[in-house]
Design a protein around this nucleic acid. Structure first.
Lengths: 334, 334
DNA sequence: ATGAAAGCGCTAACAT
DNA sequence: ATGTTAGCGCTTTCAT
């Protein structure tokens, strides 16, 4: 299909009666070329249907203009808008700067993740933005010679740039709101503890409780796998300890929670209040519409991309750490 | 960070006292090398922390082992699990075959899409799987010298391989189900008509109507932009014509429909029945749980990737066209 | 069983 | 204002 022979800069040069250097400079605008010559070159490129070989360019110039974003984006059951919105944010700034975004999926599993980092290899990308699957892994030995910006989560002892959400403050705020409405038995449900985000959210929860003089009960704290099923089952156990409210910090698990309430005909918020995380859209039309914590996903991506571009520009500049504010959206489930 | 100098195959060769050819052959297992030499080479690679330069390899071998998937995946408001699941399917087979997946976003806009195709350039990818933003565009002149497989949608007059869903049959089935329950005034709501999928869905709708002897009314057919807002507004207009059921073929627009019903306190399915498309998960916990058409998204991806790999293997084999079956999941909204 | 060397398509230093 | 050419790191043909 189309032209099977590959036209190179050399062919263009010959066809336009100029040197390859001139063609290259016309393409890149990297030194003066007379209008006349420019025209000839463009003509030739058109005639031959020339298309630049990015691989060759990148090999030679040691610059690919490609940034990779590695996160758990594809995970099958999980419907992760969050990272998709982040990706959209990243892309919006990369595009303006003529960078290209490559999305890479970690499956939220260390092994997949390491695999992907290796595949990214060296020279293929100019930078990596990643949401690590665990804070306990040592990633440094996997990375190539490009800058890395951590997003949403940070591994222990990292001294890389990072852009995260202030999970603790907003979680505390959510729990305080619940307490303000008179709740004393507030359950906490979340995904695995290997994530910094989980840790911060539980910290906010505990702090709100302790400041209100409410003693935390381990029976009311449930940490498990991220899936609708697991959300459902964990809710079942949690309910045996008679919470009057439940704070679930993952949107997929939240589906499990709501599914349970619906099935058992437990009315929300009359019998139990629910506060969830993420998923701004669908939770508007659940029954009742859910009170949720809305993370600044797009902005997170924008910031991370900006930090990355600055880092590429200036490898020696001081480490940046940004902590964006999330938003408690009170609807009818609490 | 890490080693700032880039170790090449040359360095490894020198360190192991062998030729670059031998190192290359050890890496690729592409000709016999004695165990002893192998060991030396591996040792050297380890000592120097050598990492292969995929760019150089790809320039030389004219093979990148990268397949791109271009679809409207990031579109901000839209929460497109559908294409994410497709991507997961693609990745699952690529991974097994040591291919790498690059996700590329079209924003569902012709211009963005063309941009992305150009960025993919030539030599960078070994193949492109895409869900075109419009069936009316001519993509051929944008493509490089790699195979293309269309997914979910097909441009007019394409003679490329494609993998799509049988939208007509399942849409007809959905409408027949509605008719079977006594509905005569069934509204149709969908995204823009420039997509083959829309065309097929409306065709199924019309055929079911006509076979049941019900005359189609243009007032009951609404085609608009894909967004919650547009879904809401279009529902508002549609309701003036007093439908007893509404078939909405886009999950984002479906949110608009349900939001409208909720706000106007119109009870589903008592006052109006609703059948939606996609979004298997969240629609389980809407009120009431939605009857939906579930597309085989993951399988679509798997199939497309398989077709792609076969095509790469054999450029001359006959064109493949696969049409997968979607599934009507009857829940409580109809 | 291994080595030497050409060359993929491009950029950029060095010429003129 | 433009041309010559080395070389990025790899694969692979042709030798030995």
């Amino acid at each position: 299909m189309s032209d099977s022979k590959n036209i190179s800069i050399k062919d263009v040069a010959k066809h336009a009666n100029v040197s390859t250097a001139t063609v290259s400079h016309v393409i890149n605008g990297t030194r003066f070329v007379s209008e006349d010559t420019k025209r000839k070159v463009h003509q030739a490129m058109n005639d031959l249907n020339y298309r630049i070989n990015f691989v060759a360019r990148s090999l030679r110039s040691r610059k690919s203009y490609v940034i990779a974003f590695l996160a758990p984006i594809l995970a099958s059951e999980t419907s992760n808008y969050f990272f998709m919105s982040v990706a959209a944010g990243i892309q919006s700034v990369l595009k303006q700067n003529h960078y290209h975004l490559v999305l890479s999926d970690s499956h939220e599993e260390a092994e997949y993740e390491a695999d992907e980092i290796r595949m990214l290899g060296s020279q293929m990308i100019d930078g990596l933005i990643m949401a690590p699957a665990s804070r306990e892994l040592d990633y440094e030995h996997l990375f190539g010679d490009y800058p890395v910006v951590y997003l949403d989560r940070v591994p222990n002892n990292s001294n890389r740039d990072c852009v995260v959400v202030d999970n603790k403050t907003v979680s505390k705020e959510a729990v305080q709101m619940l307490i303000g409405k008179g709740h004393k038995r507030i359950a906490y449900l979340s995904g695995p503890n290997t994530l910094t985000t989980t840790e911060e959210r539980v910290a906010g929860y505990l702090e709100a409780l302790s400041e209100a003089g409410i003693e935390a009960e381990s029976d009311l704290i449930s940490i498990g796998e991220v899936s609708l099923d697991s959300g459902y089952k964990l809710t079942e156990s949690l309910m045996r300890h008679e919470p009057t409210a439940i704070f679930v910090t993952d949107n997929v698990m939240a589906m499990g929670v709501m599914f349970y309430m619906q099935e058992k005909k437990i009315s929300v918020p009359e019998q139990i209040a629910v506060v969830a995380y993420d998923e701004f859209q669908w939770t508007r039309i659940t029954s009742p519409p859910l009170t949720v914590i809305e993370q600044p996903a797009f902005e997170l991506g924008v910031k991370a991309a900006e930090v990355m571009l600055e880092r590429i520009d200036n490898a020696g500049s001081p480490r940046q750490e940004h902590r964006l504010t999330a938003n408690l959206v009170v609807r009818q489930s609490s």
